[in-house]
Design a protein around this nucleic acid. Sequence first.
DNA 1: GCCCATCCATAGTTTTGGGGCATCAAAAAT
DNA 2: ATTTTTGATGCCCCAAAACTATGGATGGGC
Lengths: 318, 318
Amino acid sequence: MRYVLMMELRQLKYFIAVAEELHFGRAAERCNIAQPPLSQQIKKLEEELGVKLLERTSRKVSLTPEGSEFLERALDIFGRLDEAVVCIQDMAEGLKGHLRVGFIGPASLSNLPRAIRAFREANPDIRLDFSAKSTTEQLPMLRGDRLDIAFVRLFGHDTTGLKSMTFLREPYVLAIPDGHHFGGRDRLDITDLEGEPLIFNQRIAQPALYRSLIGSFHKAGFMPNIVQEVNTEQSTIALVATGLGSALVPASSAVDKRSGVVFKPLDGDLPQWEITALWKAKKESVLLKNFLSTVTQFRDVTGSTPVWELLGTDSGSL
Amino acid sequence: MRYVLMMELRQLKYFIAVAEELHFGRAAERCNIAQPPLSQQIKKLEEELGVKLLERTSRKVSLTPEGSEFLERALDIFGRLDEAVVCIQDMAEGLKGHLRVGFIGPASLSNLPRAIRAFREANPDIRLDFSAKSTTEQLPMLRGDRLDIAFVRLFGHDTTGLKSMTFLREPYVLAIPDGHHFGGRDRLDITDLEGEPLIFNQRIAQPALYRSLIGSFHKAGFMPNIVQEVNTEQSTIALVATGLGSALVPASSAVDKRSGVVFKPLDGDLPQWEITALWKAKKESVLLKNFLSTVTQFRDVTGSTPVWELLGTDSGSL
DNA sequence: GCCCATCCATAGTTTTGGGGCATCAAAAAT
DNA sequence: ATTTTTGATGCCCCAAAACTATGGATGGGC
């Protein structure tokens, strides 16, 4: 912005008109003004630039080499300006822009990948950034505007200033090692777990959820036999496969087809396993609304997904 | 120019100021206006775009995603506008642009390549286009603005509307085949050429010059024995080397070190051999003036360059 | 060769709109 | 609750853009 002082787009438009028509009268008509002001504005422009852009005799108008160069660049500039305007208007309509999505690992076994694929196909110009993070990592990111939407295990977390939508609600099932003595059973009840060696998530990761699970066992009349705590949900099933013990896992985990693990439906008074979408109420952009509208079509909050329905389905990929 | 209707650069500048300061008061100060008109202009801009660019509470201002995108693009646009202005100003000062130079073949044996090299080194941003063409081809190109300057053999051509400068003036010398009976002589006189088989340029290429040469022979009291006419000056020396005959050539041709040809100074009433720079008086741009000023430093119009001074010099290349 | 048509520049006048001043309203800080 | 900060609003004025009328130069036509 060193040299551009008083110049205005109007003057550039007028210049383009004259340069293209090579005739002040016709150019003025094209600009919807009379000829004299056009001449004056062109003169002003030339004076400010200190460069003669047009060679005019009383008979014909022609471009100087400088004028020719300037015309080319002026057209380029208007093109870019138009692009900029169209771009931000598209953004405002939610057709362009980018969305930062956070999700917990187990969400990749849910309908979320399919929802994202559908959204991506419907909105190819939206850039999507993903970060697989724990709930406790995602919440500060969401609040600090480093994330636009988070898919988390909300249980017991503070949601002031945030809006939420339950994306997935399903029962816990029991993952048991191959050859376990429960192998012949079709269903289990929570009371069957008395004394059974269990692998749990770390209590500090989700204290409220942890307490709720312990409460369920307490109601069933016994305390769980926790032989191991793990810090990521992904590693739970791997540990079950080693034969260390059994684990309560979301029903959708059954799509994990690694050999050595079998899943059994579980009756009894247990909390539901949930994935919740969270976003800042203040940052509910058109784009985010569109995204949520697609995501809603893929949510499953019946709370009763049987394991066998999930087996053999394709979860897609992010 | 579909979407850009009323928008003005002023508004863009104001927006940039607010977007960078994130404070209407300070931005207004930076724009040298009061705060209320700034608010109004930003409002106008947003209304025309149909997009909210700034989020303002009465406490702080922040960019919307659209505003952020628009800021980036607006800065780019101003950068380009500045570039455009600087570019055409440089062009007007003769620092940028391009120059189309025409020259006759023998000019490449003169100082012209050195002059062009010097100009190119002093003005690296000037694009130079060359065309090696005959005088009769160059003149219409010059008049038709397809050439900015022409280096030609002017002799007898019409120069109305053109300006000219003699670039090279030198004597004719005689090119003789190796082993010729003039071999032992230091100098020759035109009278020595009586009966000598001679190679001439085609008379239709330069009728006036042709007549002038014939006139010189006439004054010496005899008519030349023309055994061959050639259409390009370059091929003359090659023909001499075949032993077909001798030829009158410009002294600078002696830098052509092909074996089989010897050059001898020639006394007598002969026209001078000249290369003249020609350009349109109406198209005398700053750039052309600069070019001419460099070229002038390399001109040689003494009319007396001895052959031996030219021998061994490097003519450079275009 | 004179006249007329064309076309850009200039002069004077009108109108639009950008900018200034005073003030209001909202929100944070004390 | 009061003060301070900061952006928005209303009103007025003037600068600048646009209009009308006219001038002057150039090229074509009779």
